[in-house]
Design a protein around this nucleic acid. Structure first.
Lengths: 339, 339
DNA sequence: ATGATCTATGCACACGTGTGCACAACCTAG
DNA sequence: CTAGGTTGTGCACACGTGTGCATAGATCAT
């Protein structure tokens, strides 16, 4: 292991092994035509010199870099951060390297995509990013495989892995009805984004089939402070139960209810979305929809692999089933209520 | 903008502009020797074809990829996630692309470093990563510039940007003494890591110079559930004020105090560290040390730039001054206390 | 013994870019 | 008209790797 500091190239391994550079390349690639003896000699030499193939050069030659572009938006949102961590881990396990760009504005998105394309990424994963139109357009134009996570989109040939917001909304409706709620509210997010709308629709439709309807529906940005204001408006309508498109919104609602100083038995039941770590803490103890990020990120990475392996195949769209984690915010201690 | 889907190479720009490929390269690089007229022709052709230089090829030729390796650990920790977001943004603004690897185990760290080196990154930024010994050793061996963020280390020639835990501890001591506390406790994290130790030392030393001392000092992992257990032990010692090495620890302590059902006036004052978003929410309203991540990440990126530009220069070590954000958890409503 | 088949390896090219050096064209001074 | 300078451009090489093709040696069939 004589790392003298300078780069070790394959030619040096070849010289040490008394062999040509081609043979080194083939031996390391596991080419069956290389004899056992020389392969061992090459491996020994490579190990001795601490040889690491230059993936940039390999990428240039192979037209495949092993780099995957990842576009994220708001890492301060714990849900996004967690998703990114899982993606990074799973991509790494699959011998792919994630090149991460954040974009908060539309020109940021265009810039990020341009950079990614310049780096010849093998695929792009967009993680709940807005401006997905731009991203889709650029990736289709550049013929790069693209997987959108939790972002539905048009009819272009892009991979889509998304949670089933409709099913989640229905599950929440079932749960709240079973707990005895009668007057329902929905607190949506981000200018009524598609995802928020979907969750609301699943919720409302199932309520209707139970013979109820939605008394109030308002929406807020995904920030705690702004949500507090809207939460107060929701509470003014005195709902039995509130379904929030996001855990942060739910926390704001819970705090607003506490601040209103209503006796505990009269506070509405609350359900959040994302099942963030905080939801499990006793201070909130929030019933929340778990999107199954573990499965979602796994499917996303698998989809990226598949599209890299077969670029011309039809991209599939997968739906991940969410599940409900029931906690104290919808416990029966709240069930005796006077609307 | 005739993107027919296939890659556009510089030779195609050259042909369209009726010029040689060298001239295209020089024109786009802003070489002064190129005449105004041809430069315009090249730019027009490049724009028309939607030409994007292949940064992989450029990296191979220039021995400089513009990629910076980023090593992170626990993105579920909001502090790390926020730091990563800022790093990604600031690196991107400086025309650098972050290749992100997560490592939770020591072999994960070695693997991550090996991958980074293979991708010929221009520098490595390690973000509060454990196993920094391995990282330092590998980067020094590979002669890659390395910047450690919030991680002090030996005498190797690596850049270090860290918050001033000593000063922070002292500030907290001053603050708590001024608020009337007399019996102090410290709740540390992660097996008494260096960072946690430093904060405690700053705290204790200043307490001593005020004529007080530390009644209790315990430590826990950085997870809420484990911290709750240790927090209960701390409370058993009935301190006036508790300084926690981490906001999560502080939240656990606050919840433990509430759960103990002591009258509000007798609960200890609590100070956290990181000033996470949650600290500002009314449910915790936690006084917390802000590490000034904005400044810290800026300095980190600047340090990386400097080390890339001058690899043989002596790496500098910078200290970022933290500041205290005072909130309700140390408000005077708690000041009348019976120890 | 000779041609045929197979095995193991080397030569040389390609990937797309940047740049030292040479050189053509033009201008100026004598 | 010639010598010398200035300006703009092209040739050809290098970066480190993978791989098609050719080939030397060995084994085998006849």
């Amino acid at each position: 292991m004589q790392k003298d500091g300078k780069k070790v190239r394959s030619i040096e391994v070849a010289e040490l092994a008394q062999i040509s550079r081609s043979t080194v390349s083939r031996a390391l690639a596991g080419d069956a035509r290389i004899s056992e003896a020389t392969r061992d000699r090459v491996l020994a030499a490579a190990r001795q010199l601490g040889y690491r193939p230059n993936l940039i050069a390999r990428g240039l030659k192979n037209q495949s870099t092993g780099i995957v572009g990842v576009v994220v938006t708001d890492l301060e949102n714990a849900y996004h951060a967690h998703a990114l961590q899982l993606l990074v881990e799973k991509l790494g396990a699959g011998r792919l390297a994630p090149l991460v760009f954040a974009c908060n504005t539309v020109e940021g998105a265009e810039n990020a995509i341009a950079r990614l394309m310049s780096y010849q990424v093998d695929a792009v994963v967009a993680l709940a990013a807005p401006f997905s139109d731009e991203i889709v357009k650029s990736c289709v134009a550049g013929e790069k495989p693209l997987v959108l996570m939790n972002r539905h989109d048009g009819d272009e040939n892009v991979g889509v892995v998304a949670g089933d917001g409709l099913a989640a909304g229905a599950m929440v409706a079932d749960h709240l009805v079973a707990r005895g709620a009668r007057r329902f509210a929905f607190l949506g997010g981000e200018d009524n984004s598609f995802i928020s709308k979907e969750r609301e629709r699943g919720f409302t439709d199932r309520l209707v089939s139970h013979g109820f309807d939605l008394a109030v529906s308002l929406s807020s940005r995904y920030s705690y402070a702004e949500a507090r204001v809207v939460a107060a408006d929701i509470l003014r309508a005195a709902p039995d139960a509130v379904f929030c498109a996001n855990d942060t919104l739910a926390f704001a609602l819970l705090d607003a209810a506490r601040a209103a100083d209503a006796p505990e038995g009269e506070r509405p039941m609350v359900v959040g979305y994302d099942n963030s770590a905080l939801a499990g803490w006793p201070s909130y103890d929030l019933t929340s929809v778990d999107q199954n990020l573990e499965a979602m990120t796994s499917r996303t990475v698998e989809a990226a692999f598949a599209m890299i392996a077969a670029p011309d195949a039809v991209a599939e769209r997968q739906t991940i089933a969410p599940f409900l984690v029931e906690r104290g915010s919808t416990s029966s201690r709240n069930s005796s209520r006077t609307r």
